[in-house]
Write a protein that binds this DNA or RNA. Structure first.
Lengths: 229, 229
DNA sequence: AAAACCTGAATTGTTAACAATAATTTGTAA
DNA sequence: TTACAAATTATTGTTAACAATTCAGGTTTT
């Protein structure tokens, strides 16, 4: 039915396994493969038009990224983000991205800082418009965080955050549909930017951690109002 | 030659791929497969007595853990820990394990705290003996850190640290052979324990971060005395 | 002599068939 | 009707053969 034959691409970017891994990630964070749904090797093998080998490699890769869980002789399922898992994710994110902000304060170039500033100005306009709020909610917010992370210049940190955690964050946002307080988030972003511009790593880390901790508390309240860390 | 046929095991624990992954990890952190050495699929396939399929799965898994790097159509090599990569690792470790200490302060049971205390007493005796220093250097230090990490009760944190970073740490220790200041380390461990016992998460995090940052600075000096972060 | 190109061998990527395990279904008995 | 058990089915784990790509060596050309 929904044939997304990978071989139709005229020029392959990498191997089929990499290609399929990318498609799978897309299908998961877009919600096409909902949380908890089974990953049937024969079925997806047909849909993507590849053998089971490359598909298995893709699944292995996604398992490493934490997007799917596998049980021997049973199969793979898209991970289900429970309240606990979300909390755990945000704790890790708080630690890693705080460190990223701290490092970014010393490693970002003036050029990068300038671009970050104009990005924030764009966001401000979007929010004033009150129309492009959807943009800010989805991509704009991530844009800011991605730039700070990249600014850390720590490859391992970048990989942990961008290749593992952020897929799950996007997945959560897509499925829960919810998003909140763009104005407050923008203000917090601006404060973080100020700290980065001042090359104050300690402050940048503290602000980033609080920024993420706030989002985490909101999620916890939203899902289970009684529970409080 | 060195036949480590996996099928000789009378009762399999999991799948062959899991088995081989464990063996590979052991061979890498023990130094049997040195840094930068090629991982030849046909050769290791024969040595471990399994087909290429399970071996490839094992390699994929190790790639996810960061123990090997792969290039398409070229193959996999054991990762080479450069000075930069070590620094990056320790920055991530500082962030994650600091958070782990913070969480452990609220989540560890009195029982776990008691066991941790007796572990520290054992270490103190070992160091007094001046004989078992080797033990403390290798396993004792890790024991302490593992317990704090597990005490965080954050599964994702535990996985990131124990299944990914700590393999690399062990690999570094084995290959570099170097280890330092057991007395200072013990004192720092005792301070961290005190903070955990007092349920002071903020202090526990700060102490753990400084503990790791100190080890990191030492490594940086040891490898490149001029360079200072 | 050096560089570019072609050729062969070896390795990785991929596929398809086989084996082993788990889930489902069906049948039987209480 | 329900509970249990055996057999069937479908899926995963594994192997072996095939295809595609890279690397090494030698040859040719400038």
């Amino acid at each position: 039915m929904t044939e997304t034959n990978v071989n139709n691409d005229t020029h392959r970017v990498g191997t089929q396994a990499q290609e399929v891994a990318g498609l799978l990630i897309g299908d998961i964070i877009s919600g096409k493969l909902p949380q908890g749904s089974r990953i049937s090797e024969p079925e997806l093998s047909r849909q993507y038009g590849v053998g089971r080998g490359p598909l298995r490699e893709a699944i292995l890769k996604l398992e490493g990224a934490g997007l799917v869980v596998r049980a021997p002789h049973v199969g793979a399922r898209v991970v289900t983000l429970t309240q606990t898992e979300l909390s755990e994710m945000f704790a890790v994110r708080e630690a890693l991205e705080g460190m990223a902000a701290k490092l970014a304060a010393t490693h970002m170039t003036d050029q990068q800082l300038h671009e970050l500033e104009s990005l924030l100005n764009t966001h401000a306009r979007y929010i004033q418009d009150h129309e492009g709020q959807a943009y800010f909610d989805q991509e704009g917010d991530l844009d800011f965080h991605y730039r700070v992370i990249k600014g850390s210049c720590n490859q391992r940190l970048i990989r942990s955050l961008c290749d593992e955690l952020y897929h799950l964050i996007q997945m959560y946002r897509k499925t829960s549909g919810r998003r909140a307080r763009p104005e407050e988030a923008l203000i917090e972003h601006q404060m973080i930017f100020k700290a980065l511009k001042d090359r104050d790593g300690e402050l940048a880390e503290m602000l980033m951690r609080r920024h993420i901790a706030r989002a985490r508390r909101e999620i916890e309240q939203f899902i289970d109002p009684d529970k409080q860390s």
